[in-house]
Simulated assay, not measured.
Amino acid sequence: MTKYSQTIQIRWADIDANRHLRHSVYYDYGAAMRMNVLSSGGLTTKKLEEFMLGPILFREEAIFRREVLLEDQITLDVALVKTTEDFGRWSLRHHFKKADGTLAAILNIDGAWMDLSKRKLAAPNEFIRNIFNDFPKSEDFQLITLEKKA
């Protein structure tokens, strides 16, 4: 997959008292898009239940650059920034761009996979690894090695 993006029309319910996009909506849009990407690759909620795995987040950070108003239309993309070789841990980046191309916000997340029965981190199976392998990669993509505990 070379690039995944979607256009979003801002809703009235997404606006805060300052008449711009509420901060928490950026996180909601990012989460919805990530699940759409996984689902379009075949990793549906039904598959996640079958595998007894779920994506979890360690960190979610938004960097706000420009206001997004009700009348704005934004394009949201996602790219894999770094990952372990087995795709057990990963970092993704979203860009929120206004219709004129202005970067409005960046959303960075660090995540992993959790075994839902053991409630512990788990390595993804081949099905999930193949989907993550096809994820669009950022320009600064890197493979990371985790240090093993002594």
Rank of each mutant, 00 (worst) to 15 (best):
M1T: 07
M1F: 06
T2K: 08
K3Y: 08
Q6M: 15
T7Y: 05
I8S: 04
Q9R: 15
I10C: 10
A13P: 07
I15V: 10
D16C: 06
D16T: 01
A17G: 09
A17H: 10
A17L: 12
N18P: 01
R19T: 08
H20P: 07
Y26S: 04
Y26Q: 01
Y27D: 12
Y29H: 14
A31D: 09
A32N: 15
M35V: 05
M35E: 14
N36I: 04
N36R: 13
N36T: 14
V37P: 07
L38W: 08
L38V: 07
S40Q: 14
G41H: 09
T45Q: 10
K47Y: 12
L48D: 00
E49M: 06
E49R: 10
E50K: 13
F51A: 12
F51Q: 07
P55L: 03
E60A: 14
E60N: 04
A62Y: 00
F64R: 04
R65G: 00
R65I: 04
R66L: 06
R66D: 14
R66M: 10
E67R: 15
E67Y: 12
L69G: 05
L69Q: 10
L70F: 15
D72T: 09
D72V: 09
Q73D: 03
I74A: 07
T75M: 09
T75H: 04
T75G: 04
A79H: 04
A79E: 15
L80T: 05
V81I: 11
V81F: 01
K82H: 08
K82Q: 14
G88P: 01
G88A: 11
R89S: 08
H94E: 12
H95W: 00
K98E: 05
D100C: 05
D100E: 06
T102K: 11
L103R: 09
L103P: 08
N108I: 02
N108S: 11
I109N: 02
G111V: 06
A112Q: 03
A112E: 05
M114Q: 09
D115F: 05
L116W: 00
S117G: 02
S117L: 10
R119Q: 13
R119W: 03
K120C: 03
K120D: 03
A122V: 02
A123S: 10
N125H: 07
N125D: 11
N125T: 09
R129V: 14
R129A: 13
N130A: 15
N130I: 10
N130W: 00
I131F: 00
N133G: 12
D134C: 06
P136I: 07
K137T: 06
S138Q: 01
E139T: 14
Q142E: 11
L143W: 08
T145C: 08
T145F: 06
L146F: 03
E147M: 06
A150N: 09
A150H: 04
